[in-house]
């Protein structure tokens, strides 16, 4: 009696070739996943594990040397933002150390005074020339209303040191 699997019948079990094809599809998926995992781990080790230097650490912490490309975190100093000729300049403060930043363009996001940002770029003299700005926001969520604006006026943000 012939008991080889039939492929034409609706009720027949999957033919060996179809099963093998399906298996190889998953093997290919696994190869892609392992490659992606390797790439992510390399990004973690080179970028994520030490994402930024604080303003006060420039030149004093390993990995935050003045002559290399840096990612610098600090709070935008109140009243320091000015825009001219498509350039944005502002100051960053952290632990009472301040640095002037110049950025070519509009930082975007929710960039504003008193907010912590991470600026990517290089130190040129006393000025940090940034070509990328990322805005951090806190884990605090408050409803926008008139009362809270007056509260913020009572406590100026320039007192924040991060």
């Amino acid at each position: 009696m012939d008991l080889t699997p039939r492929t034409s019948s609706d009720n027949a079990p999957l033919a060996p070739r179809t099963k093998a094809k399906k298996k190889w599809r998953y093997v290919a998926m696994l190869v892609v996943v392992v490659s992606a995992g390797g790439f992510i781990v390399s990004q973690f080790l080179t970028s994520a594990i030490d994402f930024y230097c604080n303003v006060d650490e420039i030149g004093s912490r390993v990995g935050c040397e003045e002559d290399r490309r840096l990612r610098v975190q600090g709070n935008v100093v109140e009243g320091s933002i000015s825009e001219s000729a498509n350039k944005t300049t502002f100051s960053l403060v952290f632990n009472n150390k301040t640095i002037d930043v110049i950025y070519d363009g509009d930082p975007g996001g929710i960039f504003q005074e008193c907010i912590p940002v991470v600026a990517h770029g290089r130190l040129q003299g006393d000025t940090f020339e940034a070509n990328r700005i990322e805005v951090r926001h806190s884990n605090e969520y408050e409803a926008a209303n008139a009362d809270r604006i007056s509260e913020s006026e009572v406590a100026p943000c320039s007192q924040q040191v991060g």
Partner: peptide, 30 residues
């Protein structure tokens, strides 16, 4: 809010790795 879709910061990187790990789990099942 940040001004960028993606950064390789610790939270995003570990989350991406978790996602890829479970895609791998599903591949192993198949």
């Amino acid at each position: 809010t940040w001004g960028t879709f993606w950064v390789w910061d610790p939270r995003l990187t570990t989350t991406a790795f978790l996602f890829v790990t479970y895609l791998g789990y599903l591949a192993v099942r198949g």
